[in-house]
């Protein structure tokens, strides 16, 4: 599996609490930055959901264009978007 296809883990496998980023590394000079950083809310979504949001923004937020690109009907694409919105709202609530 390619690195880009792997979902960033956001839940602790041991206690199920939300994971935080504690270090970031530079792939060029190998500098490491340590600290406690919250995972961005979009990073908590599944890979295909992240791709959907990226495509949605690229198509200027047009569900009709998205439906044409994905070969799906308008309500199917709208339902996918509604499900992501619901998931984001739940993630925001759980964060608070």
């Amino acid at each position: 599996m390619l690195n880009s296809e792997r979902k960033l883990p956001d839940i602790c496998p041991s206690c199920s609490a939300s994971l935080q980023v504690t270090s970031l590394g530079c792939s060029s000079c190998e500098t490491i930055v340590s600290g406690k950083f919250q995972l961005p809310i979009l990073a908590r979504l599944a890979i295909d959901e992240q791709k959907f949001i990226s495509d949605f923004v690229k198509s200027s937020g047009s569900l009709k264009v998205m439906a044409q690109q994905l070969g799906l009907s308008y309500p199917t694409v709208r339902n996918l978007l509604d499900d992501i919105i619901l998931k984001l709202q739940e993630n925001e609530k759980s964060k608070v």
Binding site: G71, L72, S73, Y74, P75, T76
Partner: peptide, 11 residues
């Protein structure tokens, strides 16, 4: 089939 076809086309 509504996953792929809906709206005016389906009508």
């Amino acid at each position: 089939p509504f996953i792929y076809i809906a709206g005016l086309k389906a009508l």
